[in-house]
């Protein structure tokens, strides 16, 4: 019954930034199988409502992590949850990152802001399968150093041979890293356009700009996967809210090849 939430318990709630919390949830009884990187759940805050949230980690024992940013009533309620609290989950829904298509090729992850959350399981998966993929590069743009997600894990990724580059819009005192838009990082990495798969998530403006920059560097549109956002109420393709032209993003997305979305994203108010 995919319209009814299944009870999960928050087993850990950790503040990532001032307004982002990672909720580790574990099924109370029956688990929801089938989560893969890029797919999402409808997460229910009791009595408040439901929001679509991509998984930011898929653990053993049916544990899932959702990284939530407090931007509204439901996400605010979710961010106030503590270990032991109850949530409801429906899912998994949608199409995730096509990692099979990336097999054997370099993987270029480009994340803006909380767009890193749905990409984290991709990085973990690629690092966990050495030999399956070529070089892994993770380019992250964020607002300020204190808004950077998963700081400790990034160091781990670097030790595991991923190239991880971070750039911020607003450096504070003490920031010794890059300043600028995430696309500036594309200049710094030696991309092999004929053997690279790019996975992009962030605000839609950032996605469009990044995809254009990747095309300009010779990546074909079908090797650029983007994760898009629209209003979602049901997750099952029935409520009609998440339409982007011919696509129902909860069903045909949220991850879609840029070759299918390029012209759609160019139409205002589509």
């Amino acid at each position: 019954m995919t319209t009814v939430p299944v009870p999960y318990r928050v087993t850990a709630a950790s503040a990532e930034t001032a307004d982002c919390v990672s909720l580790e949830v574990t099924p109370v009884g029956q688990a929801l199988p089938g989560f893969t990187p890029g797919r999402f759940a409808m997460v229910y805050a009791f009595g408040v409502g439901e929001v679509p949230i991509s998984v930011s980690a898929i653990g053993g024992g049916h544990r899932l992590v959702h990284t939530v940013r407090a931007i509204g009533a439901v996400t605010g309620a979710l961010c106030r949850l503590r270990a032991g609290d109850a949530v409801g989950l429906r899912g998994p829904y949608g199409v995730g990152w096509d990692l099979d298509a990336a097999a054997g090729s370099d993987v270029l992850v480009v994340a803006g802001g909380i767009g890193l959350a749905p990409l984290r399981p991709v990085v973990r998966h690629v690092l966990g399968h050495p030999g399956h993929y070529g070089r892994l590069r993770v380019l992250i743009g964020t607002r300020a150093p204190e808004d950077l997600l998963y700081r400790e894990e990034l160091a781990h990724w670097r030790r595991a041979a991923a190239q991880v580059e971070v750039t911020v819009d607003r450096p504070g005192p003490g920031w010794r890293g890059s300043v600028g838009l995430v696309t500036t990082l594309l200049d710094r990495v030696d991309t092999r356009p004929d053997r690279t798969t790019a996975l992009v998530c962030g605000p839609e403006v950032m996605i469009r700009h990044t995809a254009r920059a990747l095309l300009a560097r010779g990546l074909p549109a079908h090797r650029i996967q983007v994760s898009l956002e629209r209003n979602m109420r049901c997750g099952t393709g029935h409520c009609g809210h998440c339409q982007l032209g011919p696509l129902l993003l909860c069903r045909d997305g949220p991850v879609v090849g840029y070759h299918r979305t390029r012209s759609l994203l160019a139409v205002r108010e589509l």
């Binding site: 939430p5 299944v6 609290d85």
Partner: peptide
């Protein structure tokens, strides 16, 4: 009405 939920001793009981 798709479902009802009760909070009982901190547990969610959700019924279609």
């Amino acid at each position: 009405r798709q479902w009802t939920a009760e909070r009982v001793d901190g547990e969610l009981v959700i019924e279609a």
